[in-house]
Structures are given as C-alpha cells and as structure tokens.
Design a protein around this nucleic acid. Sequence first.
DNA 1: ATGGGTGCAAATGCTTTGCAAGTAC
DNA 2: GTACTTGCAAAGCATTTGCACCCAT
Lengths: 149, 149
Amino acid sequence: MLSKEDVFKEYLESKKLKFTAERQAILDRVFANHKHFEADELLVDLRLNDLKISKATIYRTLSLLVKSGLLREVIFGERHAHYEHVYGHEHHDHLVCNGCGKIIEFVEYRIEKLQDEVCRENNFKAESHRLQIQGLCEDCMKKSNDTTK
Amino acid sequence: MLSKEDVFKEYLESKKLKFTAERQAILDRVFANHKHFEADELLVDLRLNDLKISKATIYRTLSLLVKSGLLREVIFGERHAHYEHVYGHEHHDHLVCNGCGKIIEFVEYRIEKLQDEVCRENNFKAESHRLQIQGLCEDCMKKSNDTTK
DNA sequence: ATGGGTGCAAATGCTTTGCAAGTAC
DNA sequence: GTACTTGCAAAGCATTTGCACCCAT
C-alpha cells in the first residue's frame, strides 16, 4: 500500500508540481497529530515545531492535500473549514454537540447503502457525501436538565 | 394552522421584538418566490420590487427567521449560506451537482430512522441534521462521458 | 417616551491573490 | 534555465457591528 508521501508525490508529479520542504513539513504535521483541525491550528502546530511557514502556503498546501485525496474538508456549520484525514480512516459521519462542540464519529453502513439507492433513483453519480447531526451530547444534556444550575 | 406571519409575530413577541415594515417585506419576498436562496439573491429580489432594505437588515432578519423556525440555513460546501423554507415543507436532504450546481431534493424516511438509531446508541439528542451528497447529475454525467467534447 | 430598529460605513474573520524573489527539477 | 513556490501584504467576500437617527408599541 502506498504511503501518504507516495500518494502526495504521485499527485504532485501528475500535475507537474514540486515536492518542496514546506509541503513535506505540512504533510508530516497534518498526519502527526490531530484528526480534525482548522488552518489556524495547523499554523500554531507548525510554529510549535519551529516551522515558519506562511498562512498563504498553508492554505495552498491544504488545498493540494484535499485534491490528492489525503484530506477531506468538513464544514460544521461555521463559516470556516475543518479538515480531517481520509488516508488511513474509514469513511464516517459526525454527531456535533451544540453545547460543548464535541464531535463524535460514527459509521453506519446501512445509511450508505440507502444513499446509493437514492442516487440510483435519481440517476445521480455520487462523488462524496456528508452527513452531520447536530444536537446535545450526553454530558450537555445532563447539564441542561440539571435543575440546580 | 398558524400562517407564516403568525409564526413570525409570535416569535417576535416572545422576544419583545417588533414587527416592522422591513421584516414584513422580507418575510413576504422570502416566501413569494424561491425555495433555496442566498442573502444576495434576496437583496436583488427586494430591489426588483422597489424595496430598499439594507444588507444589514437582511442579514439580521434572516437570522430571526431561522430562529423562529420558518427558515433553515444550509451550507453547500461554499463559504456562504443558503436558506430554504421550513414552513410548508417536509424535511428533506440534497443531491448537489458539482457540474451545474443543480440541487435535487429527496426524502428518505429509512435514513432518518437509522439516524435516530445512531443517536440512541451514542446517547445523543438530535436537534437537526443535514445530509448532502455531491456528485454529477444525469445531464452532467452525459456531458463528461461525451467523447465528442 | 423609549427600547428596539434601521442604514451606513467600517470592521471582522477566513481565505485568496499579485508580485518580487527564491528554488526544485 | 525555467516553471513552479514562497512570503508578504493587500484584496476579497460574506457577514457582523458601532453609531446616530428613526419608529412601533
């Protein structure tokens, strides 16, 4: 199986783009740590590792990582992007807590199958999908029911 | 059954807010025409009807319409909001064509049921959800297969 | 009369872009 | 050598906000 680097390098080559030190560093940090992250969090993480890469380059590289299929952009209702790993992770969907912002991932194969069915019915060729359920997690539910609050 | 106006007025009253001419006009135009629309499209529509309402007021009123439950905000992967009617429409999800931008609505009760099941398993209380499938519609699929292109 | 509402223009926050200088191949 | 890259600062865009004046209740 191809490593992340191989996947990225192959993509870059196919587009006649270059594998620079900045792209290397971003790739490393993106997959070193977090699962979900935002552009700014990546910037901080790079700084903490003494990597001085400009915001512009971060945005440009994230876009390439998405196009190469290593990352996916997720939008959680806010107006800025979050990213998550595609490489090495099964496709999943999200429960987003409106109370504390916690994100719970889940996999439900039967939903995917019904989606395929819907696509067939509408002569639609799916390329990607996102399902997200907003509400309250267990803890926040308890808090909001707590009459002593 | 309560009319849209009644729903809106009730919401405003409950928050000690006022039912102004601007809010009236926006409510009317929002439900006169479109289903899906963006803030800017609403602005144009208001101008075409000789209603000179500022952008600020449009944004402030849309937010109130969402809170009152008459509208829902949908984010189609772009970085700006779309709105759709809740009042008078069954809950549905979307197929979004990456080729031409067309939006196909669908209702699939079995998916909703599986979502409820997922929430139960995770002790999660759903408040809303959004499911969207991106891909190519029939027409765009034909175009991309067209070898004469 | 008065607390909320409006328009305007400026501010915001995330993201993109133009440009001059640097670098991978 | 030459096309692609980078950082910087400026621009872009959708949306929000501060403020002085206005108006529904």
